[in-house]
């Protein structure tokens, strides 16, 4: 794409400075979060000396660990499902002649963005409860389904943004060379689309991790996620235990990603 040889066309005045500022701002609260996970006191904002006690408490607390693991399981499922259906939908609604119902599809896909969470939450509470009563199944499936649904627009929009204006000449060339539609998609379209899919999947993942209200209303017995576990504490007092578990998750993330990069680098 020719960006490597250009030496200064890619820089715009002030952009790098603002970008670095943005990174600093992003990490400032995270630093305090990590610092307070080592708080010896009982509070999330009153320093009581350095201590690892909250790590010990979190380590011994199966409820908070279970909640963290549950959050991750739901987020993985939801982002995979949401990104898959969103990729298909983006392919179906971009780069083709306008067709009847296209606007309808667009509106439907973006609908979860348009109402506050509490509304979807109440609607799902009523709907899923009757399904739970009718089927007797009350597993994590409902939460995964609900999360997948509200993650769809977050995955769809970046993929669509990537797809729009991505020209079709490569795909046409492939088709001219008798590639099947699947081969064309697999070897041409998907690789070109990948940055969009990656962006969409990452958004879907963090959006699922964040969700509080819908989860609070859809969850069954024993299905607290980390956010609903915290919501329950909000009214009374939060303890640095959640800081500890969040820090542990962050470290885990960074480790996995680093390992991933080292492995792929060796291979490449």
């Amino acid at each position: 794409m020719g960006k490597n040889r250009a030496f200064d066309v890619t820089t715009l005045p002030g952009f790098t400075a603002i970008a670095i500022l943005a990174f600093v701002l992003l990490y400032a609260p995270i630093v305090t979060l990590v610092v307070y996970s080592f708080n010896g006191g009982n509070s999330v904002n009153l320093w009581g000396g350095f201590s690892l006690k909250w790590y010990k408490i979190a380590w011994e607390n199966e409820a908070v660990q279970g909640a963290a693991v549950r959050s991750l399981i739901i987020a993985v499922w939801a982002s995979v499902i949401a990104t898959s259906v969103a990729t298909l939908a983006a392919l179906g609604t971009t780069r083709r002649k306008r067709f009847r119902g296209q606007t309808f599809i667009y509106v439907m896909i973006n609908q979860p963005l348009m109402v506050p969470e509490i509304v979807t939450a109440v609607a799902l509470l009523i709907f899923f409860s009757s399904v739970k009563l009718a089927t007797g199944y009350s597993g994590l499936g409902y939460l995964i389904l609900a999360h997948s649904a509200f993650c769809v627009p977050f995955a769809y929009l970046p993929i669509r943004a990537r797809l729009e204006g991505m020209d079709t000449s490569m795909e046409i060339a492939a088709a001219d060379l008798y590639a099947t539609p699947w081969q064309t998609f697999r070897h041409i379209t998907l690789p070109l689309l990948m940055p969009g899919v990656l962006a969409g999947a990452m958004l879907a993942f963090v959006i699922s991790l964040d969700d509080v209200i819908i989860t609070e209303f859809v969850k069954s017995a024993g299905q607290d996620t980390l956010p609903t576990y915290m919501l329950g504490q909000l009214r009374r007092a939060l303890t640095p235990e959640v800081n500890a578990i969040s820090t542990a998750l962050l470290v885990l993330t960074v480790l996995i990603l680093t390992a991933f990069f080292i492995i792929t680098k060796k291979r490449g």
Binding site: L125, S130, L133, S138, F217, A221, D224
Partner: peptide
């Protein structure tokens, strides 16, 4: 014992009234 949390009487009421969540 499995503990599930709520943060208000209204949420607890809404969820229990809707049913099917398996609380005792």
């Amino acid at each position: 014992v499995t503990i599930t949390d709520y943060d208000s009487n209204t949420t607890a009421l809404a969820k229990v009234e809707a049913g099917g969540s398996g609380f005792d």
